[in-house]
Amino acid sequence: MTSPGDGALRVGIRIPPCDRADRLVESVRRAEDLGFDQAWFPDSQLLWRDVFTVLTAAALATERIGLGSAVTNLATRHPAVVASAARSVAELAPGRFILGLGVGNSSVGPVGMRPSTGAEMRAGLTLLKALLDGQEWDFGGVRSRLRDPGPEIPVHLAASGPRNLKLAGEIADGAILLSGVSPKTLANATSHVRDGAIAAGRAAGEVSLTVSAFCAVTDDPLAAARRLKPICASIAQNGGAASLALAGIEVDVPAKVEGVYPDLVHAEDWDAAVQICSQWVSDAAALRFAEEFCLVGTAEEIVRKLRALHADGVTSVFLQHVGSYDPPTDLIESVGSEVLPGLASGSGL
């Protein structure tokens, strides 16, 4: 998609809004000080604090670091509401904000709603982008527009399935890939984004590629991999079995798993979730998942994988830690002190 010569790989960190906004900004400031390029915040109204409140606090408390939602949605939030909120953040951090959108998984599930369909995503994105561009829109006979649309806001779509990957290539400014870091799974995902771009008459390089990956800097990859079993199980549970199989991971997880709240990825009792998922995800499968979908290993190994991703056209990576209800303090420190210096210096090759 994008040429690796288009600039240095941007490395971001995912920070769940799990605490008061004024306390969370300390994590963002620390990430900025250590050289992270971006901080991304997920959105789930019952799990965390309001994402746009946290983004506002982060915008006011930082100077350089990019900020993004990873991701909000157009199901629990009307596109017009998202447009206004995004504009408000972008005004405080001009040139630093990316609006990341998805189908709404952890936002819709806890309130009994369903994720957005492909058709709903297309319609919502079209409306949202029109409002952000200052265009007038017909809301069922009432024509309205967003007053003071403000600075330009890149809109990125998180996707794992072929349809939404193609949709990202067709109408979004970027794709947030949930498809792993291995060359085979990455190539499969980016081919769908490229197909969407070409079908829309766009140049493939117009769509930036961001890879989302769980990360652990460790000398004990098996121990870290065991902690990832709920993530692997959730991918299999939510239509990702084909992607796992492409990486040589065969797991069969039931559609509903008892004893985990609110879901596998955001389990409040992570140790219990790991134990439950061990009946479907073996240690060997978890280790392969860590190798193919995540960035797990020594700092030097992670640097090599990051450079390989950039060589394959990835423009940005944002790293996630295991756990939804604490800030990624250890990951910020380990990546900031061990990985980013190696990436900048060219070591780890």
Rank of each mutant, 00 (worst) to 15 (best):
L9Q: 11
V11Y: 00
G12T: 15
I15E: 02
I15H: 05
P17V: 06
C18S: 15
R23K: 12
E26A: 11
V28W: 01
W40P: 02
L46D: 02
L46E: 07
W48P: 12
L55T: 10
N73G: 04
L74G: 00
H78G: 03
H78K: 07
P79I: 06
A83R: 01
S84T: 14
A86E: 07
R87K: 14
S88D: 15
E91D: 10
E91I: 04
G95K: 06
L99N: 06
G102T: 07
P110R: 10
S116I: 03
L127T: 10
A130R: 12
L132W: 08
L132P: 05
G140H: 07
G140M: 08
G141R: 06
R145T: 15
A158D: 05
A158R: 09
G161K: 14
N164F: 11
L165S: 06
E170C: 09
A172H: 03
S179K: 03
V181H: 00
L186D: 12
A187E: 13
R194C: 04
R202S: 06
A213Q: 00
F214P: 05
L228A: 10
N238T: 12
G240F: 13
V257S: 08
Y261Q: 10
H266G: 08
D271M: 03
D283R: 01
A285N: 01
A286K: 06
E292F: 00
G297D: 01
E301P: 01
L306I: 00
L306M: 01
R307V: 11
A308H: 09
G313V: 04
T315I: 04
V317R: 09
V317H: 03
Q320W: 05
Q320E: 12
G323S: 09
D326A: 15
S334T: 14
G336K: 11
G342I: 02
